[in-house]
Computed example of a mutant assay.
Amino acid sequence: MSTSTTPTPTGGSLSLATLPAVLDAVCAQAGLDPAGARLIKFTNNAALRLASAPVVVRIAGSRAISTSITKVVNVAAWLAEHDMPTVRLLPGITQPVHAAGHAATLWEEVPATGPAPTGADLGRILRRFHALPEPGFELPRWDPFTRIRTRIDDARGIGPDDREWLLERCAETETAVRALDYRLEPGPIHGDPFPGNLVPGPDGPVLCDFDGVSHGPREWDLTPVAVGRLRMNYPVDHHTPLAAAYGADVTAWPGFDVLRRVRELVLVTSVLPQLDSNPGLRAQWEPRYRSLRQSDTRTRWNTYR
């Protein structure tokens, strides 16, 4: 993936065009070789697997993600201290790495050689996560709306009418959230737990992606998989075994429909900063946005690729 001809970017949203130069700069800081790196995924972050070492480089794709990257490093260290089944930061390097106007983290690669993770796996990991003591640093309060609004502000490739509608939808949903009566004890939450954030390691699945870790309602951590069953075009029901393993079914709680609206808003806005710079996203994004705007809760969404 390394190139010597791509100009070094000066910050802002990451794009496929600027990614090689940013990767070169990050690897130069870390003393790693970017030659032959392979792109794993590029949505709101770019994740790349190095060919020269068992390392995954994760580069923040937008301003909204960059603001949480120091917290991600702190959370990863905290989870490692408690021997949680989670991905580990690459040791011996001061993190996060800031290079070419972008922020990145580097991780020990987990060989994806185990069986496909299940909802039951995620339910058990979430029970352990929610049982952890408070960390020795302050977690931010759960607030999905600030990040949603930042992504709308940073959006590329949508018109003013779409932008205004999304902001109005955000305000209406935030008001509804404030009126919720939660039943589970609040505390540290992952923020975005779903099977796609489990790596099928040789010793069992490990949890990744700590951008959304915060202090908030545990019901939120049970919502992504529940919404996935209702909204996403998944061939497997992960929600039922997750609820059984965790010991609670969030869909039976009266406030679930409100958190479903939050989750769907997150899923629609998450790629807005990359909508123009990563053209392949638009084909998945447009049906999501159209059905959300039409209050169509039956249309199934495909995953971003």
Score class of each variant (00 low, 15 high):
residue 242 L to P: 03
residue 146 T to E: 00
residue 210 F to D: 06
residue 78 W to D: 12
residue 183 R to Q: 13
residue 201 G to W: 05
residue 100 A to R: 03
residue 66 S to Y: 00
residue 57 V to A: 10
residue 207 L to R: 00
residue 241 P to C: 06
residue 259 L to Q: 08
residue 136 G to A: 09
residue 240 T to V: 15
residue 162 D to R: 06
residue 95 Q to A: 02
residue 18 T to C: 10
residue 67 T to K: 12
residue 2 S to N: 00
residue 208 C to R: 04
residue 250 V to I: 01
residue 19 L to G: 05
residue 54 P to A: 00
residue 275 L to H: 11
residue 150 T to V: 13
residue 163 R to S: 10
residue 211 D to A: 09
residue 281 L to A: 07
residue 179 A to K: 00
residue 171 A to E: 03
residue 166 L to A: 08
residue 141 R to K: 03
residue 55 V to R: 12
residue 145 F to G: 05
residue 222 L to E: 05
residue 163 R to H: 12
residue 143 D to R: 14
residue 152 I to T: 11
residue 263 R to T: 10
residue 170 C to N: 13
residue 244 A to C: 13
residue 59 I to V: 13
residue 103 A to E: 00
residue 282 R to Y: 02
residue 241 P to K: 04
residue 299 T to M: 04
residue 213 V to N: 06
residue 276 D to K: 10
residue 50 L to H: 05
residue 49 R to L: 10
residue 152 I to K: 01
residue 15 S to I: 07
residue 183 R to S: 09
residue 67 T to L: 13
residue 38 R to P: 05
residue 33 D to K: 08
residue 190 H to W: 05
residue 75 V to M: 08
residue 7 P to E: 06
residue 190 H to I: 02
residue 34 P to V: 09
residue 212 G to L: 03
residue 115 P to T: 12
residue 49 R to K: 10
residue 203 D to Y: 09
residue 253 W to G: 05
residue 5 T to M: 14
residue 218 R to H: 06
residue 56 V to T: 07
residue 225 V to M: 01
residue 178 R to A: 09
residue 69 I to M: 14
residue 113 T to D: 02
residue 173 T to M: 09
residue 41 K to S: 14
residue 98 H to Q: 11
residue 111 P to S: 10
residue 28 A to V: 02
residue 252 A to F: 04
residue 172 E to K: 12
residue 11 G to T: 06
residue 45 N to H: 10
residue 26 V to S: 05
residue 305 R to G: 14
residue 221 D to P: 04
residue 69 I to Y: 03
residue 115 P to D: 09
residue 216 G to N: 12
residue 111 P to R: 01
residue 267 L to I: 13
residue 219 E to H: 10
residue 61 G to M: 14
residue 125 I to C: 01
residue 22 V to S: 04
residue 36 G to C: 03
residue 8 T to L: 14
residue 113 T to I: 03
residue 286 E to F: 11
residue 193 P to V: 04
residue 89 L to P: 00
residue 89 L to W: 09
residue 93 I to P: 06
residue 121 D to H: 01
residue 296 D to H: 13
residue 295 S to N: 06
residue 167 L to D: 14
residue 171 A to M: 07
residue 95 Q to K: 03
residue 22 V to H: 07
residue 234 Y to F: 14
residue 13 S to P: 06
residue 298 R to C: 04
residue 29 Q to D: 11
residue 272 L to T: 02
residue 94 T to G: 02
residue 15 S to A: 03
residue 31 G to W: 12
residue 245 A to L: 12
residue 51 A to H: 14
residue 150 T to Q: 14
residue 234 Y to W: 13
residue 16 L to H: 01
residue 181 D to C: 00
residue 229 R to N: 08
residue 148 I to D: 10
residue 38 R to I: 12
residue 67 T to A: 13
residue 208 C to V: 13
residue 62 S to W: 15
residue 185 E to T: 11
residue 164 E to M: 07
residue 258 V to M: 13
residue 96 P to S: 04
residue 71 K to R: 15
residue 188 P to A: 12
residue 240 T to N: 12
residue 33 D to N: 12
residue 169 R to I: 11
residue 269 T to V: 08
residue 22 V to W: 07
